[in-house]
């Protein structure tokens, strides 16, 4: 079925993914030491400089500056930490909650299913801004609380998709065999069900990452977002939004940083799927 070129492509992906993702993580951890400017270093003599290749740009600020003369490259690097932290933690958290609830719902069924699924109905009906404002009112603004808000609005997607898959899986012979063989429910869920839904999970999680990092921008003007002078890609998007038709680089470069990160996780996700799925692995190792 698969020609050589395809196999080569499949083989290269994890490396590229690893490299990209590694680069992003690296800049999140060490970047702030390496870039020349702090995220809040204002310079009113260099306001809204375009990237270096455009007229008026300069190499000292390769991707330009913002309305306070702050260096975009430095801000993207500084922002990586919070964006990745918020992105990864919320995705892992909502993925974990959603997956287990989804598996329980689909596998056990009956009252458990009704309970969890009706919870998803309730959750889906709640506007996230409302939840965000309620959390601000109750807990005050902080990064931790953004994570809470996003995680409690986000687990539903995982739960519903996993449950759908489990509903049809649980009728399969190999599950019935496991049940007859005396496997406990947690064991069945973990060893027999989970591996069979992992593909969808990975796709969902990688889809989610970009969305969550962007989503954070929705909170920055509610006061729930990252607190200046610190910054995040979401906050940069939110700030750059009104300038989009005047200074395109403000929102576009953080957007590209997000895209780059999502690309890396997608490639890594494909690789992870290949490792976890013994059948597919064959193709890759040929």
């Amino acid at each position: 079925m698969k020609n050589k070129k395809t196999i080569l492509y499949l083989k290269k992906m994890p490396i590229a993914g690893g490299v990209i993702f590694g680069l992003v993580i690296f800049s999140a951890i060490l970047g702030p030491v390496l870039v020349p400017y702090g995220p809040a270093d204002q310079d009113f003599s260099k306001v809204l400089k375009p990237p270096f290749w455009q007229n008026g740009g300069e190499i000292k600020h390769p991707l330009g500056t913002d309305m306070m003369g702050r260096d975009i490259v430095s801000r993207i690097v500084h922002g990586a930490r919070i964006s990745l932290f918020v992105g990864l933690v919320t995705v892992l958290l909502s993925c974990f909650i959603g997956t287990w609830l989804g598996m329980l719902s689909g596998y056990i069924g009956g009252k458990m299913d009704s309970l969890i699924m009706r919870l998803t109905d309730i959750q889906l009906s709640m506007p996230y801004i409302l939840i965000a404002l309620a959390i601000i009112g109750a807990l005050g603004p902080s990064i931790k609380n953004i994570i809470i808000v996003i995680a409690i609005t986000n687990w539903v997607g995982y739960a519903r998709i996993i449950r759908g898959e489990v509903l049809s899986l649980r009728q399969m012979e190999f599950i019935e065999a496991a049940v007859v063989g005396g496997c406990s429910t947690p064991r069945i869920l973990f060893y027999h069900i989970l591996p069979n839904v992992v593909n969808s999970l990975i796709v969902l999680a990688t889809l989610d990452l970009g969305r969550v990092i962007i989503f954070e921008s929705a909170f920055s003007f509610l006061g729930l977002g990252v607190k200046p002078p610190a910054t995040s890609w979401g906050a940069m998007l939110a700030d750059g939004r009104i300038y989009l038709t005047y200074a395109w680089w403000l929102a576009t470069f953080p957007g590209l940083a997000i895209m780059f990160t999502v690309l890396g996780t997608n490639l890594l996700g494909d690789w992870l799927r290949d490792i976890l799925d013994p059948k597919r692995k064959r193709y890759v190792l040929v």
Partner: peptide
């Protein structure tokens, strides 16, 4: 944000809240 930076410059620490 700009004013907060200016206050910091004269030695007033700012806790910034949007």
């Amino acid at each position: 944000e700009a004013i907060a930076g200016m206050f910091e410059k004269v030695g007033v620490k700012i806790d910034f809240k949007v």
